[in-house]
Design a protein around this nucleic acid. Structure first.
Length: 204
DNA sequence: TGCCAGGCCCTCTTTAGGGCCTT
């Protein structure tokens, strides 16, 4: 069975650090589902990793140990997220980071997923080569996307990534002439050398 | 004891190094 081609889940993790291989865990997951170019559902939960988070992470995210003390453990939250995700494909900003944590947390509960990842960072680096940088917040500003909330919280970052994603789909549609932009085309474009992006889109 | 991420991508590259992104 193939992943669901009509529906996409855009997700973001807040975590205790950068590497699940070094013992870091997820502390919050936020996600939105996009169907036919519109956000139709959202998911957000804090999760208790079972140990205290550093001052750096608390300051960076605004998530405190007190907030996490009342949260459900990671395994319960990730099971609910796996149910939410279903067979959809996935998008994240710097997807290699979120994929590592998704794989690590789902492995702990012996849970699989079928969807494939696309990366909004890799796509933005190709589409918006003139942007000052390709951080999520910078790209939201660069594309004049309305942003009212706190970056570095999972749901808000997922919502902003979703808006950026839809803006990129529109730009791809304009440049390629395609009325619908297949997920597989986006994955190919994300691996196309930057100098060949215009040629790639013109040949669609 | 000391160390501590990983993938992508560029370049003064490929027998390598360093910046960008994510927390």
């Amino acid at each position: 069975m193939q992943p669901n081609a009509d529906s996409l889940v855009i997700l973001d993790f807040e975590t205790t650090g950068l590497s699940p291989d070094n013992g870091d865990r997820a502390i919050e997951i936020g996600a939105v589902r996009i169907e036919n170019g519109k956000v139709t559902e959202q998911f957000q939960e804090l999760m208790n990793p079972g140990f205290g988070i550093s001052d750096f992470i608390a300051n960076y995210t605004g998530i405190t140990n007190e907030m996490l003390s009342g949260a459900a453990p990671c395994d319960q939250v990730m099971k609910r997220f796996a149910d939410f995700l279903g067979d959809d494909n996935l998008v994240a900003h710097n997807a290699s980071f979120d994929k590592r944590f998704l794989d690590a947390e789902l492995n702990r509960i012996s849970c699989q997923y079928r969807g494939e990842f696309a990366c909004s960072l890799l796509l933005a680096r190709r589409l918006y080569q003139q942007a000052p940088n390709h951080k999520l917040g910078t790209l939201v500003q660069f594309k004049d996307i309305l942003a009212s909330g706190n970056f570095h919280r999972a749901l808000f970052d997922a919502q902003m990534t979703a808006k950026l994603w839809l803006a990129m789909l529109e730009d791809i549609s304009i440049q390629s002439g395609l009325s619908e932009v297949p997920f597989t085309l986006i994955q190919k474009l994300s691996k196309t050398p930057k100098q060949q992006v215009s040629t790639f889109l013109a040949s669609c």
